[in-house]
Design a protein around this nucleic acid. Sequence first.
RNA 1: CGGGGCGUAGCGUAGCUUGGUAUCGCGUCUGCUUUGGGAGCAGAAGGCCGCAGGUUCAAAUCCUGUCGCCCCGACCA
Length: 475
Amino acid sequence: MDIKNKSITSRDEDFAQWYTDVCKKAELMDYSEVKGFIIYRPYGYAIWEEIQNYLNKEFKKTGHENVYLPMVINESLFQKEKDHVAGFAPECLIATQGGGQELQDKLIIRPTSECLFCEHYSHIIKSYRDLPKLYNQWCSVVRWEKTTRPFLRGSEFLWQEGHTMHASEDEARQETLRMLDIYDKMGRDLLAIPFVKGRKTEKEKFAGALETYTIEALMHDGKALQSGTTHYFGNGFSKAFGIQYLDKDGKIKNPYQTSWGVSTRLIGSIIMVHGDDNGLVLPPYVAPIQVVIVPIKMNEPGVLSKAKEIKEILEKAGFRVKLDDSDKTPGWKFSEYEMKGVPLRIEVGPKDLANNSCMIHKRNDGTKSKYDLSNIESTVKDLLAAIHKEMYSAALKNLLANIKEAHTFEEVQKIVNEGGYCKMMWCGDRACEDKIKEITNATARCIPFDQVAFDDHCPVCGKEAKYVVLFAKAY
RNA sequence: CGGGGCGUAGCGUAGCUUGGUAUCGCGUCUGCUUUGGGAGCAGAAGGCCGCAGGUUCAAAUCCUGUCGCCCCGACCA
C-alpha cells in the first residue's frame, strides 16, 4: 500500500483528476472525437457485462423478459405526455435529415423509452389476461448534456430500462419497490456498495412519475451519486397513450405502469467508492479478472508450466483468471494489475516450486502472504469472499460515519460543505429545499425509508417537520 | 450558456516574447542481457506544429477567423 503509482494523481490532491486518471490508466474508456461520447474499452465493458449477467438472472427470476425497441421516436409520439416532454425536450438530440432530404417528422434519438413502450403496449394489451407485462430493454440512450464526465454523465450512456404494466395500482407499486430491492441487493452482493434507499422529493422526481425511488451511494470525496431509480407512474401515461384493456368485470380500464433503470454510471460508482491512490480496486464478483498470475523468472524450468497449471485449476473451479506471460518485468505487471484493480495476484517463481507454494497479494489492503498450492481453489474462494466482505464493510463504515444530523440551518450548511449526508427533519415545503440548494448547492437526495424522527421542526423555516430527509452535494 | 486552461509523433511536452534545419521524455519496433515492486545497453521507425485565410524571401512562431477538447460553475441518470 505504501508504494504509490506516480502516474495517478492522488485523491486528496485533486479528486476529479484522480478519477480521470483511473478511467484512462485502468483502460476502462477512451474519449472519442465527439464530446460526451466515450469508447467503452474491453476492460470497462467487461465490468458492464458482469453487471448485465447479474441483473439478467435477477430479472428473469422475477418474470421479466428482454425486448428491443427502436432508437428513434417521432416527434408527435414524444409529445403525448406533457410533464415528460417538458422534462426531456431540452436535452434531446434530433435527426432532421434522411437520404439527403429534410424529414417531414423529425426523429428524436431516445433519451428514454417510455413513449415507445407505451405505444407498443397500446397495441398488445387488450385483456386483463395480457397483464402484467414485464419487459426490460438493454440499450443506450442519448441526452445532450452540457457537462460530461466518463461514466458519470455522458451524452450517450448504456443502461437497462424496465417498463411494466399492471392491472392494479397496488401491484404496480409493489413492482416499483421490488425492483429497488433488486438494485439494493446488487449493491450488497455484487458491487460491495451500501446504498441508502428512499423516495425522491417532488422537485427531484422523474418527469411524468407520481413517485420516484432511488438508491444513493456515497463517494470517497463526500459527494452523493444517484445510482439507480425506480418510478411509479400510476395510469397517467396509459391514459395519454390510450392503453386500455377489458377487465374481468366487463369494464374498460387503463393499466398502471412502472419503469426502472441502472446505467453505466454504476461503473463510476465502483471507481469512486472503492478506488485508492494506486488506482482502481474492484469488488471480486464484478471484476472481469479476479485473479492474475504473475510468473517470476519464467524462463527457468518449471515456472511457466506451474503457472499454467494453476490457471487451469482455477478456471475449472469457475474463477476468471489471467496469466500474464508477456515479457514485461514482474514489477511492471504488479503495478499494472493494481492500477486495474484485480482483487488477487498470485506470484509463482523458482523459490515456490520446491515447496509447492505461491505468494498471494490482496489488492484491497495490499497484504501479501505465502499459501500452499495443494488446495488453491478453496484458498482463492475464501480470499475473494473475504475481500468482498472487507470492501463492503469499509464502504458501510464510511457511509455511516458521514451521515450527520442537523438541528439548525447553520449545521445544515456546515455538514453539506464538509461532504457527506446531512440528515435533517423537513417541513416538506419546496421553498426550504430551494433555499438549501441556493445557498449550499446541495440537493435533497432522498426521503429515506428509515424514518425515525429526531426533532420536531424544520431547521430552515422552523415550522413543524414531517419527514426525515438527506441532503448532500451530488454528482 | 458563463469562467478558466489547452491544441506540436501513439501519449506527455520544449520552442512562440525577438520569424530562419522540429526539442526532450515515455511508449512502439529489432537484438542481446535481465526478471520476487514500473530493468539495462545498442540500434531503428514515426510530424500538413488543430483547420482556413493573411503578412513575409521565409510562419509552429506575427495578424484575422474558425473548429475542437479538458476543468470549474448553472441544468440533468
